[in-house]
Design a binder for these strands. Structure first.
Lengths: 208, 208
DNA sequence: GGCCTCCGGTAATAGTCGTTACCATTGACG
DNA sequence: CGTCAATGGTAACGACTATTACCGGAGGCC
């Protein structure tokens, strides 16, 4: 055993995961049938059961794997030196791109759908995705508070609000299949507007 | 025929709808079985088929009926005279209460889940719910613009941002079953914070 | 090369689900 | 009180699905 077989294994495993993800995303957990997955991936059902144990195992592998891949990259690393507005813009753009990617849309749907059946999954999705991002954003805001750039207030809640603005009705419409993901231009415009609103609000300044 | 029978009919119809809504909300469309619904509602499967035709008919009746009931009430009628901040607060509180109600959470899940299988349903849900609310909010903002209370800008987009802030990570967490709906106090605090952010932003004013 | 282990495919199993045919019962009306 | 129509419940049907037993073949080890 060793290199060759594990290479073949992992290639087959990957093609199974890919096909299964497609079917699960399209049909949902309950309606997705093993037969349909095999029809797309080729091979035999026996493969799935020896690799993942059962349907639940396959499902878990897909969700955790894709969530890891898609959600792990945090948008901010070493931008502490930049302007807060620019930092938020970069952050928001990265966030929006992730949220709107077909993979994350699919996982979002599955997590919402199967929250009752697989509570751990929903928890893992939130914590690895929006949860972690919110925490990181809250840190950034706290540093900005220390530099007296923004008002005092609960940064965790502020971060929640910002995430909400980025997600917005746009995300809802895409999740509901009512419109395609936004183009680069639309996304940039949405983020710019959200950052502006977050920083300045809409009220007319009294000193103009 | 007449009063008595239609009364019995509608009472039975209602109890069927209630039980079916519970099962669909808990299990999703594909996994919900007619047997499970009958077990909760009493009676026999024959009832469902003579009343709703088939499973799809029952599902459609539930979603449109509940969506109508829960989403039809618009939060603002004649508050034009009040302060914009107060208007937004009332609006947001009403919105948040609706979004967090178990019925709407259930419908939200179903709409997201079955967006592929029933595209019309997703569309109807959005238009009757968030869509209409956003349009109404945009009108309110336009009036505020005319009164020079807020800056110029696309009110439709501003309304989207506000809706996003109200929904927030809080809604996501509830939808994912990670936390219960917020108490009155938490909801009020969230709305207050969102309105404040929407109006004033976080940047420290230069004239303080 | 021969044996043996393991892997992939086919077909069977057991259970479930949506839907419908059939029968008992009930309530209304003459 | 008898007839009739409609309605509710039981059981059956056909299709489908997750899971597993069985078998043929391919590839590694001595």
């Amino acid at each position: 055993m060793g290199g060759v077989r594990s290479g073949r294994m992992s290639r087959r495993r990957e093609s199974l995961l890919k096909a299964a993800a497609e079917v699960f995303f399209e049909q949902g957990y309950a309606a997705a049938s093993i037969d349909a997955i095999i029809e797309r991936a080729g091979g035999s059902k026996r493969n799935i059961y020896s690799e993942f144990g059962n349907k639940q195992g396959l499902f878990a592998a897909i969700v955790t794997g894709n969530a890891d891949k898609a959600l792990s990259s945090l948008p901010i690393d070493n931008v502490e030196k930049r302007d807060l507005a620019e930092t938020l813009t970069v952050f928001g753009r990265h966030l929006l791109r992730i949220y709107m990617s077909p993979t994350v849309i699919g996982i979002y749907r599955l997590a919402v759908t199967e929250a009752n059946r697989f509570p751990d999954l929903a928890k893992a999705f939130y914590e690895q995705g929006p949860g972690r991002t919110t925490i990181r954003l809250a840190q950034i805001l706290e540093e900005a508070q220390k530099r007296d750039e923004i008002r005092m207030g609960d940064c965790r809640h502020l971060a929640d609000r910002f995430m909400g603005m980025i997600r917005d009705n746009l995300h809802l419409q895409v999740v509901l299949g009512l419109r395609p993901p936004p183009s680069e231009k639309e996304a940039d415009e949405a983020v710019r507007s959200a950052v502006d609103l977050f920083l300045n609000g809409v009220r007319i300044s009294r000193h103009t």
